[in-house]
């Protein structure tokens, strides 16, 4: 089981459903929610300090959000020093395949792009591919 998962999405229903799904699947101890990129970064800054234990291991990131979108979030995230101490798996969730086809993500620190909606299969796939016993694979 992961310690913490961060959901970054402006749609509260999506967050509600994803949180419910993750809880049902017992993915993590804690689930944090941020409704735009800016708030997501704040969560990371707050929780991923030197001695913090509840820094998110997995971030599920939406692309289209007000204030700061997923793209801008990733650009900012790359500038953060905390990245070295806390390997964080970031997964982009997009509404259509076309968005992914348009590219632009190659140079960004994301593990994968997935098409919404998030399902049990997709979650299982992520856990087995990127984590082992609650810790990131490297």
């Amino acid at each position: 089981m992961l310690s913490t998962v961060l959901l970054v999405d402006d749609d509260s229903t999506t967050n509600f459903l994803n949180e419910r799904l993750l809880r049902r699947l017992n993915v993590s101890h804690r689930i944090l929610v941020a409704t735009n990129g800016q708030l997501g970064l704040e969560v990371l800054a707050e929780r991923c300090g030197e001695d913090s234990m509840d820094c998110p291991a997995l971030v599920l990131l939406d692309m289209k959000m007000p204030v700061m979108n997923g793209f801008e979030f990733l650009e900012e995230f790359m500038q953060l020093p905390l990245r070295q101490q806390h390997p964080i798996v970031i997964v982009l969730l997009t509404s259509t395949q076309l968005e992914q086809d348009l590219g632009q993500y190659q140079h960004l620190p994301i593990a994968e792009c997935l098409t919404k909606p998030l399902t049990q299969e997709k979650v299982s796939h992520l856990l087995s591919r990127y984590f082992s016993d609650g810790h990131p694979l490297n």
């Binding site: 749609d11 229903t13 999506t14 459903l17 259509t96 919404k116 909606p117």
Partner: peptide
């Protein structure tokens, strides 16, 4: 439209 309608319909389905 097709893009923006996707999320709510998926949510309705999941709900």
């Amino acid at each position: 439209a097709s893009h923006d309608l996707k999320t709510p319909i998926h949510n309705i389905e999941a709900l």
